[in-house]
Design a binder for these strands. Structure first.
Lengths: 203, 203, 203, 203
DNA sequence: TATGAATGAGAGTTCATTCAT
DNA sequence: CATGAATGAACTCTCATTCAT
C-alpha cells in the first residue's frame, strides 16, 4: 500500500498530555513556516517534522495526513482571524465607514503578515470545500456585521457585498506588499487603501 | 548517462516542419487545460502529453523541461495580452477615465477567461524571476500609457500606481467569478467594477 | 514537488538502528555485485535494491543518489586497501625489494579479486575528482613507504615512481586474469610478476 | 547543406557515392570525438549526428545501431593499428629487442593518442566477443612476429607472452599520460618504458 | 536518401504513508 | 507515544530506435 486515500474519517488525534500539546504546537509552527516558504504542494512532511524537531512517525501520530495538517492550520488561523475581527468590532463600533475601512485594512494586513501560511492555505485547490465555505461565510458575516454597526450603518445587502470585496482586497494588498521588485509599492498600497475607503464611504 | 544537470540554458526546440508546429500548438493547448485545472505543480507531463494525443517523448522533444512549457505558455499568454491591450488603446484613446476603466475591466476579464492558465502561471513560485519581472513591467507600462491618453490624461505617477491596481483588481474579479458558492457573485462583480471606475475617475 | 536541484552537498544518511546498519551493508554488497558485473553506468538502482532484497525507497533512504552509493563503495574499498597495505608493511619490512614485489603483486591481486567493483569505480568518469585524487595519493604514499623500508631501501624519488607503476601493473594483472580466452594466461601473469620484480630489484 | 548542383551530367551516381563516403567518414570522426570525450555508454546517437552535421535519420541510415558504430570504429582503428605495426616491422626488422621495445612503446603510444576512442572501445563490456577476440589475436600475432625478427630473435613462446604484455603496458602508459594530477608523470612514463626495455632485453 | 518528428521502455528520484521496535 | 526504517506508486526526463514525408 501507500499513497493517499486515508480512510475517510481520519482526524487529528487530540494530544492528551502537556507534552503532546507542545509538540502539536511545534508541528503547526513548523508547518506554517514550511508552507509559507514553499507553498502547500512543495511542503514535505519530512521537512515539517524535521523543522519541529520531531520524527516523521511522531508527526503522523498527530496528523495522519498532510491534508489534516493543512486543515488544522487553516482552522486555527481562521479562529485567530475571527477573534481578531471580534476585537476590532468592539473598538470601531459606531465609527464612520471610512474609519472602519482603514481599521480593517490595517488589522487584516497585520493578520496576514503574522499568519504567513493563511493565503497559501485558503487559496489551495482540493481543499475540503465544505470547511472552506463555512469559514468564508463566517468571516464575511463578521465583516458584514461590522459594517452594519458603522455610522451611518451600511444596509445588509450592501454589507454582504462589501465584505467579499474587503476580504479580497486585503489579500491583494498583502500580495503587493510581497512584490519586492515594485518600485512604488508603498504608494500603491496607500492608493489601494484610499480606494477602499472611498468606496466604503460612498453612499 | 542519467540524471540531470540543471544546465540553466535549455530552450524549447523550435519545430521545423508543419507537423511539428501543429504538435507544439496541441501541446501548449493541452498544457493550458491541465495547468488551469490543477495548477502548475499538480500538472504532470504525462497528462499533458496524453491530453495532446502525443507520446511523452514527443512532448519532451519540444519542451525539454516542465519549466520550459510553463515559460512558453506564460510568454505566449503575455504576448496575447500585450496585443489585446494595444488594440484596446486604439479603441479608447481620448475617452474619459471611467469609460477606460470599464473597458479595461471587461477586456482583461475576458482575456483571463480565455487564457485560463495565465493566473496559475503568473503566480507560480520559482518562475524565472527576470522574465516575469520584465513582463509585468511591460504590462504595467501599457496600461499606464492607456491612462495617459485618457481625457483628461492621468498624470504619469498616478498612472503607474493605477496600473498595478488595475492588474490585481482584474485578477481578483476573475477569482471571484470562479467562486461558484458565492450567492451574490454578480452583484459583487458589479460593485468591484464600480469601485475601480470611481477610483479612476476621482481627481 | 518534483525534479532535481543538483544540490551538490547530499550525503548518505547514516543508519541509526541495527536494522538500518544491516540494510546498508546489504545494499553495499549488492551494489558491489551489480557494478562489478555491469560497470557503474549500466548498473541500475532498481537492480541494486532488488539484489539487496530492499525496496527502491529503502535504497534511496540511505543513498540519495546513485553517485553516493558509488562514492561510499569507493571509499570503503579504499579503506580496506589501505588497511591491507598497512598489514603488508608490517610483514615485509626489511625484506629485499624482490620479495616486496612478489608480496605486493599477490596481495594487491587478491584485494582486487575480493573487491570486484574497485576497478570499475576507480576508473569511472565524472567521479568526484577531489576524493579520487586524495585516495590515489594516499595509496601511492603507502606503497612508497613500503619501498622505503625495503633492504636496501628504495630512495624516495624512485619509490614514488615505482608506486604508480605497481598500482597500474596490478590492475593490468587483474585485467589479464579476467581474459578467459587467453591461452597462455598463467604464463603471462608469471612473466608480468617477473618483470615487476626484476625492475624493482634493479639498482 | 544547401544545393551545390555539382553533379556533372557524366557521372550522376559518382557524387552520391562520394558524398556517402564523406558522410560516413564524418560520422565516424564525430563518433570518435564523442566517445573519446564521454565514453561509449554516455555517447548519444543524437550528439554524434549533430557533431557530424548530419540528422539523426541520416546517421541511422549508415549505422542502424549504436553497436554497429562502435564495431565499425573498432574495426577501422584495428586496421590502422595493423598497418602501423606492419610499417614498424619493416623499419625495425633485425634490430635488437631493446630498440624494438622503444619503437613499440613510442609508436603504440602515438597510435592511441591519435585514436582516442580506441581504449574506450576495446575495453567496452558487451562488445561483440568474437570480433574482439579475433582482433586481439591478430595484433598479438603481429607483435609476436616483430619480436621473432629481432636480433637475437625472441623464441615463439616467449614472443607470444611478451606481445600480451606490450599491449597492456602501452595502454597503461596512455592512461598514465592522461592523469593530469600526477606530479611526476614524465618520470613515471620513462620508467615504464625502461621497465619494458629491460624485460624484453633480458634473456 | 535526407530530415526531423514520434515512440516508449526504462532510469533516477521523491514523498506520503505505514510498520516494527 | 516516539523513532526511524520500509514501501511503492508516481513523476520527470533520456535516448535508442522507428516512421513519415
Amino acid at each position: 500500500m501507500s499513497s493517499q486515500m486515508s480512510s475517510a474519517a481520519a482526524k487529528p488525534r487530540a494530544p492528551q498530555r502537556e507534552r503532546g500539546r507542545a509538540r502539536v504546537a511545534a508541528l503547526l509552527a513548523a508547518a506554517t513556516a514550511v508552507i509559507a516558504e514553499s507553498g502547500y504542494e512543495a511542503a514535505t512532511m519530512t521537512e515539517i517534522a524535521a523543522r519541529a524537531g520531531a520524527s516523521i512517525g511522531s508527526l503522523y501520530q498527530f496528523f495522519p495526513t498532510k491534508e489534516l495538517i493543512a486543515d488544522a492550520l487553516h482552522q486555527e488561523n481562521g479562529e485567530d482571524l475571527a477573534r481578531m475581527l471580534a476585537g476590532l468590532g468592539v473598538r470601531v463600533a459606531g465609527k464612520p465607514s471610512a474609519a472602519l475601512a482603514d481599521a480593517l485594512f490595517d488589522d487584516l494586513s497585520g493578520f496576514l503578515n503574522s499568519h504567513p501560511a493563511f493565503i497559501a492555505l485558503a487559496g489551495r485547490r482540493n481543499i475540503d470545500a465544505k470547511r472552506k465555505k463555512q469559514m468564508r461565510r463566517l468571516l464575511r458575516g463578521q465583516i458584514a456585521a461590522l459594517l452594519a454597526q458603522a455610522d451611518p450603518p451600511v444596509p445588509a445587502k450592501r454589507a454582504d457585498i462589501l465584505a467579499v470585496i474587503v476580504l479580497h482586497l486585503i489579500q491583494t494588498a498583502v500580495t503587493i506588499a510581497g512584490e519586492v521588485d515594485l518600485p512604488n509599492r508603498a504608494a500603491v498600497l496607500d492608493d489601494l487603501r484610499l480606494m477602499l475607503r472611498r468606496h466604503m464611504a460612498a453612499a
